[in-house]
Design a protein around this nucleic acid. Structure first.
Lengths: 101, 101
DNA sequence: TTTGCATATCGAGATATTACGATATAAATT
DNA sequence: AATTTATATCGTAATATCTCGATATGCAAA
């Protein structure tokens, strides 16, 4: 974890909407009760969009931000793109913060 | 630690200059080698200002920000104001982040 | 190949953050 | 009281972030 990585991650996390999304993705089944929109690779954008109370473009932008920071990974399957947490990155960040802060 | 506390803290930490200051305050003696400017209550603003490479008002503003977030405590002694880390708050934040993120 | 659905990107307006110089306040010194 | 030193606050310009609607792209179905 470089300084730059850390900087990108904490900037991503400084936004409440992005933190919410990341938290929701901890428990996809309970946070997104809909039957469809789930896959082994996470939750599709549509479900997150419905829950977020923000425009589709805004949610997509937030997801792109989380993705650039490395906090989530995405996989396209057909017309859907699924997002899930990158636990390795999240844990590495939390440990780095605990150590260096 | 409420959501609001957490939000204030992570916003404060999303700025690199404020993170630098907080890190410097971990090792005051080695980071601020000057003999004076130190007290049992931390490091005076002037030393932080000299090291930061930012204007005096900007540094003061950053310190006020860290203080509002609870990450540092301050004590005036004569004409000087000393700042030091609030380790309790910092640890509580790091633990909360590790748990909830 | 045309239509429709899901997601991403673009451009723009609104708001927030950062940084600065100027000035105010607080305390010590003369 | 006047001056000096240390820090905080104010006003403002520059930049970044957030959000949206409009539109583009990717894929599937008809």
């Amino acid at each position: 974890m470089t300084q730059k990585d850390f900087d990108n991650i904490i900037k991503a996390l400084s936004n409440p909407a992005r933190r919410d999304i990341l938290t929701w993705l901890k428990s996809p089944k309970t946070e997104f009760p809909d039957q469809c929109g789930h896959s082994e690779h996470g939750v599709c954008v549509g479900l997150i969009f419905e829950k977020a109370g923000l425009s589709q473009s805004t949610v997509s932008s937030h997801l792109a931000n989380l993705h650039r920071a490395g906090l989530v990974v995405s996989k396209r399957q057909g017309q859907w793109v699924y997002y899930q947490r990158n636990e390795a990155c999240i844990n590495e960040f939390a440990d780095y913060l605990k150590q260096t802060l």
